[in-house]
């Protein structure tokens, strides 16, 4: 199970990579393996400020659907355009090409986990 030390995580299995005033957000390797083949991303919050822990979209796998939760309070700037035609990138490269949204940070996350803490959470 790939859990990079350079990222921060949520209890809901999102990761966040903070770069100055913006951040990239996606779901973890563990999350994608639990969901199975990702077929569709349903995110309609571009331009909106979404509060920490609130839903910014949903991810549809073949067998199931899951809400996506904001790791921090932020304004959704864009959805990864690659995922429109290649949603399977979330499975094959969850921390790279499979990133889901870019957000402008409006507040720091209070419940973010380190890689070590996230590993403990999922028992790996």
């Amino acid at each position: 199970m790939n859990i990079p030390d350079s990222l921060q995580y949520t209890k809901d299995h999102e990761w966040i990579k903070i770069n100055g005033s913006t951040a990239l957000i996606g779901i973890t390797d563990f999350a994608q393996s639990e969901l199975g083949d990702i077929v569709y991303l349903d995110i309609n919050t571009v331009g909106e400020e979404v509060k920490e822990h609130a839903v910014f979209g949903t991810v549809e796998a073949v067998k199931t659907v899951s809400d996506l939760f904001m790791p921090i309070t932020g304004k959704v700037l864009e959805v990864n355009p690659l995922l429109e035609s290649n949603p399977e990138k979330v499975n094959s490269d969850p921390y790279g090409d499979g990133w889901m949204i870019k957000a402008e940070i409006k507040g720091t996350g209070s419940g973010l986990l380190s890689a070590k803490e996230y590993k403990e959470l999922i028992g790996k």
Binding site: G36, D37, A61, V62, K63, N91
Partner: peptide, 8 residues
Amino acid sequence: PVRYSSDI
């Protein structure tokens, strides 16, 4: 067993 590799 729900899946071995990928559903698709």
